[in-house]
Design a protein around this nucleic acid. Structure first.
Lengths: 258, 258
DNA sequence: TATTTGCACATTGTTAACAATCATTGTCAA
DNA sequence: TTGACAATGATTGTTAACAATGTGCAAATA
């Protein structure tokens, strides 16, 4: 459906190139931990890169590049890519390689709908009784967000904005739930990178603070409404109705044989 | 923490042996589709076997056995096991092999807590407006459950009981959400196999029908309460507070050399 | 000049052999 | 008899070579 266009997107994407970051991380990794080159490290690294929007959708993740980058054998890279593919972060195309996933509008709506259903439950239960130390963790996270916003650190702000929702899930001390949310948040990063038009999506103002306030107030209904409003706000800041960037690309290419 | 006991459980488990089913499925598969021996087939097969409680927890899934069973190379089996491991269905132990997962009481509580939060959202949104064809699908599923119950087909009833919740998720036509629920339901099957004491867990009476009725009535609150009650009912039918079956097994074996 | 066809290269998929680790069993000594 | 210890066998982890597929370029032809 969407694999017949733009074979190598590296030089087409406006986002920072992947190679510079890759090599930096590679050297860093080769220096620090040569003892445990687990493939979970590769997964986490790519996961983080996607969440920070350093890896643009449709970026090719060739095995050779990843091998050299992380200094591991092809098997490890292959396993990591398989895991990432099973979570919808990368798109594994047979005999063609692995690419950072490029979710369509339908899939984007699915992710937001799922987040709405799950996260409303998360904050509702938290409003029904949250530990003091958990509130402290959340408020500390809020401080980091504000600091990043004041310093105009866009990358850090993007990362923290997504991580806030993971922190909300972590309050339940439920590894199963946290994993689900982490996956959905990461896919949201891809969606925002693809469909994000205005900067409002990357700057959630003080909505996160409102969510915390609603939770500590103990009003479950208010907490639900607040996070629902927040998620919808992020979604409404996107160009989901429009055809994505790749679709007109194909049409343009096919019609540009003038 | 829990890998130091009962290395080979095949002949210790009271559940049906895995080999008979395996070989049957293997021949069936070799006959029908020799063209696409994808590893997704292996994953789905093991998934189904776990949901039907044909594969008991702690059952060893050796690579050689799976290779011969499914008639594929070791790489395919390895990839399938990695995927199953990433979803908590099997436990991959380094240099020791893959075993059907044996969730502890804490993990069981996490799964139920996650299901409570997510599935209440699912039925709430469904109560807010569900398509007629979706209702038909659910009622048809209910008929199958009743048929299996009347025929005392315990295996089929177990499968359908879990699949009902997957069908609920499917009503949203949301692949992301459906995948999450499918994983949670499958892990619930493992939990029930481990901690299930009374048969009440396998026979949810007519609670599923109550859920559908609450949904079609349009009362979101009632739908939430109904499925919450249902999930808690299943959970309360378990011996979660007790130490699981494997602990006393080892003690009994070690002390039974009279 | 534009299109198509063939070839060369690069990348991925697969297989098989090898290395490493773990479990079991047998042996020896206390 | 019991305990530790070592050897053997089996199973998993890893690597490298090979096969297969897709991509891009170039040459040839209309």
């Amino acid at each position: 459906m969407s694999e017949t266009r733009a074979p190598y997107i590296n030089d087409l994407q406006p986002l920072p190139p992947t190679h510079s970051k890759m090599t930096r991380d590679a050297s860093q990794k080769l220096e620090t931990m040569h003892t445990d080159p687990d493939e979970q490290m590769i997964v986490d690294r790519i996961y983080s890169a996607v969440m920070e929007q350093k890896l643009a959708p449709r970026t090719k993740l060739s095995e050779a590049a990843l091998c050299e980058t992380f200094g591991v054998g092809r098997m490890r890279v292959r396993r990591a890519l398989l895991l990432l593919g099973s979570q919808g972060i990368v798109d594994l195309q047979s005999n063609r390689g692995a690419y950072v996933a490029c979710p369509g509008a339908d899939e984007a709506r699915e992710v937001f709908a799922a987040r709405l259903m799950i996260e409303t439950g998360i904050v509702r239960e938290l409003a029904r009784g949250i530990g003091d130390e958990a509130v402290d963790v959340l408020r500390l996270h809020l401080d980091k967000e504000n600091a990043a916003r004041q310093q105009d650190d866009r990358t850090e702000l993007i990362r923290l904005s997504g991580a806030f929702h993971v922190e909300l899930a972590k309050c339940h001390k439920n590894a199963v739930l946290t994993r689900v949310i982490r996956e959905l948040v990461t896919r949201t990063s891809l969606i925002v990178a693809l469909f994000g038009a205005s900067r409002s999506t990357t700057c959630p103002d003080d909505e996160h603070e409102l969510i915390i306030d609603a939770i500590v107030s103990g009003d479950a209904r208010a907490a639900e409404d607040t996070i629902r409003h927040h998620i919808l706000h992020v979604q409404n800041g996107l160009d989901l109705e429009r055809t994505q960037r790749t679709e007109p690309d194909l049409a343009k290419i096919l019609s540009s044989r003038d």
